[in-house]
Computed example of a mutant assay.
Amino acid sequence: MLRAERSTTRRAGQRPRFARRATLCRSLRLLGSFRFEQTDPAVFYGGVATDTADLVGDFYRDLTGESLRGTIVLDVGGGPGYFADEFGRAGARYLPVEPDPSEMHAAGLRVAGSVRGSGMALPFRDDAVQICISSNVAEHVPQPWLMAAEMLRVTKPGGLMVFSYTVWLGPFGGHETGPWHYLGGEYAARRYRRKHGREPKNRFGRSLFAVRAADGLRWARDTPDDIEILAVFPRYHPRWAWWVVRVPGLRELLVSNLVVVATKRASALGEPTAEDAA
């Protein structure tokens, strides 16, 4: 069994603060919003934004005993900045990073400090921000674990990294081409093109890649000694169903979205400023 599978958290056996939010009602609400991902993204991302801010805030408080107020939250693959308002309400400075200019302006949103750049080569110095997150992005990049390493690189010692991605063999792995992705990504893309007369937004092999739950667990197991894995759990499941992440095979079908929460072990922490992210 992988080290990261043995528990959802490694801090003295403590249950993450976020676990109290992981109810069946929350799961049903979030899963129900998925049908709006393509037709009304604001509805879909509005619910996910609230949930993401809660998740990050809870884990940051577990880690530091502090709220998000005054922190810098770097969102890798943040698109047009759907999460900006929620993190702003929590008192954080939110900085989205997005490589695609059309995605940056997709919703007509403007977020001060938005950065165009690749998650696989983040345009920030080492130890730049207190919090670095990525939500449902890793399956859209060809080298997701390089992106994860970059996220850790720019996170300060004692800071928080939250890496959440859609599992390929889960029900939402094919995005708009599902459930036909179970017969292969190329087949699903061709079928979508025949049915709709256009390419899917998420094109397998170009902007959509097969990332497994086991890949995230393996990455968590193999992180360097100065990285502590705080939690690994299925994002949209109620707390009583988090055990599925520990079962090979079954987790690929049922996890849907895997979250890996990590921190760099603190050596000497300074006071964070907004200029640290420049």
Rank of each mutant, 00 (worst) to 15 (best):
M1K: 08
E5F: 00
R11I: 00
R11H: 04
Q14W: 01
R17I: 03
F18N: 12
A22D: 12
T23G: 14
T23N: 14
L31C: 10
S33L: 15
D40E: 10
Y45W: 15
G46Q: 10
V56R: 12
L63Q: 11
T64I: 05
G65T: 05
R69C: 10
V73G: 06
G78H: 12
A90T: 01
A90W: 06
R93C: 05
L95G: 03
D100N: 14
P101L: 11
S102E: 15
G108H: 07
V111M: 12
A112M: 02
S114P: 00
G117W: 14
S118Q: 15
F124R: 05
D126N: 08
S134M: 04
E139P: 05
M151R: 05
L160H: 05
S164C: 13
Y165M: 11
W168D: 09
W168F: 12
P171M: 07
A189H: 11
R198P: 09
P200V: 09
G205L: 06
G205F: 01
L217N: 08
A220M: 00
T223P: 00
T223N: 01
L230N: 02
L230M: 02
V232M: 11
F233A: 06
F233D: 03
R235D: 14
H237G: 02
A241D: 14
L250A: 14
E252K: 10
V255S: 11
A268C: 07
A268M: 09
L269F: 05
E271R: 15
P272Q: 08
T273R: 13
